[in-house]
């Protein structure tokens, strides 16, 4: 292992190499005071370097011993088990759940986009409420983080959806638990709102800051099971000159979100706007932020109008076939589209 791969500053690295310490093994037996003298640096700095080096070589040894190639590696078999036991977050529209294979999945980044007024924010609010359905009712019983970049989150609407959700749960309760003396008789709609952590973001710098901070926040609030960003694109579509910087920041953000989803076993839902794109002689609608961003999310769902009905289309997914299904936005939230007789249309 080379010294150049250590995460230390460039000048320290230069000093190490010019003093002849080119490999990690050459650092293994040297004492801090000796190293300090050789490199002409203060002793505490030498201690730091040795600490970093020993951590690096130590982790190498463990890995070689137990046949694990990298930290966090898993066999496909283990992953299958894990996937089977994980619970999906329902969208409250069973047609949509069906094509999604049960709902929005944890540990994945799902991007949802569509034209203005199609119901992106509605789906966002619905998911923030549905994540809290207790395990007794087939939910996850988690909490939600709602990052609002556009200012379109409406508390009144969240309350309506929470009320409808509480009603549905009561109904379910009375159907299934007639015998038992009301397990959880009172589900307070306002309690739903108490479990939605709302961040209002006003610049793209804040957006990056909040995503950096999420790791610590989720660590402190372990029961957060979904992060919703409404929308990922708003601040990146205005006052931006340097497109290379934009691409870099966006991909950095996508990486952090993916890491967060994996580490804390939570779902990340990104809402995106649409833009027009010139393609083979005609203009077409496409999700915003460009082609390199389209690789960033695991799943991509496009919401569109088909005649008079709202439809959701799976544009990209590693595990589900591309399909579309109708859905409706009602006073009670996202529901099945009632008028539609043919349910799921495979494409």
């Amino acid at each position: 292992m080379e010294v150049s791969s250590l995460p230390i500053s460039a000048s320290q690295r230069g000093k190490l190499i010019s003093a002849g310490y080119s490999s990690l093994s050459s650092l293994s037996s040297v004492s801090p005071s000796h190293l300090a003298r050789d490199l002409k640096i203060p002793e505490n700095e030498a201690v730091e370097i040795l600490k970093v080096a020993s951590r690096r070589s130590g982790s190498d040894k463990i890995e070689n011993g137990s046949h694990v190639i990298m930290n966090g590696a898993q066999t496909a078999w283990d992953m299958l088990h894990e996937e089977e036991s994980s619970i999906c977050i329902t969208t409250s529209c069973s047609d949509l759940d069906e094509i999604l294979g049960g709902g929005i999945r944890s540990k994945e980044v799902t991007e949802i986009g569509g034209v203005p007024g199609i119901g992106k924010t509605q789906i966002g609010i619905q998911l923030a409420v549905n994540i809290q359905i207790p395990a007794d009712y087939g939910g996850l019983g988690g909490k939600a983080i709602y990052i609002d970049t556009e200012g379109s989150f409406m508390v009144e609407r969240a309350l309506q959806i929470a009320e409808a959700c509480a009603e549905d749960m009561l109904e379910y309760n009375s159907l299934l638990r007639k015998d038992s003396q009301s397990h959880q008789a009172n589900i307070e709609p306002k309690a739903f709102l108490d479990n939605i952590f709302y961040f209002r973001i006003c610049t793209y710098t804040e957006q990056i800051a909040v995503i950096n901070y999420l790791e610590k926040f989720v660590f402190e609030h372990k029961d957060v099971k979904i992060v919703i960003i409404d929308s990922i694109s708003f601040h990146f579509r205005q006052d931006f000159e340097d497109m290379a910087l934009r691409t870099r920041l966006l991909s950095g953000m996508a990486l952090k979100l993916m890491k967060l989803a994996k580490k804390f076993n939570l779902a990340v839902v990104l809402l995106n706007q649409v833009t027009t794109k010139y393609n083979e002689g005609s203009f077409q609608l496409t999700l915003a932020l460009g082609d390199s961003w389209s690789h960033a999310s695991t799943n991509r769902i496009i919401l569109y109008w088909n005649g008079n009905a709202r439809y959701a289309y799976i544009d990209k997914s590693p595990s589900m076939r591309s399909a579309s299904s109708p859905y409706a936005v009602t006073g009670r939230g996202i529901r099945n589209s009632s008028s539609n007789c043919k349910r799921v249309k495979l494409m």
Binding site: A158, L193, D194, I196, F199, E206, I208, A209, Y213, K216
Partner: peptide, 18 residues
């Protein structure tokens, strides 16, 4: 991490907002 935490706007629960 420290800069992000400090410059991140504070959160509110939807209930307190309402």
């Amino acid at each position: 991490a420290q800069i992000s935490e400090i410059s991140c706007p504070p959160y509110q629960t939807a209930l307190s907002l309402l």
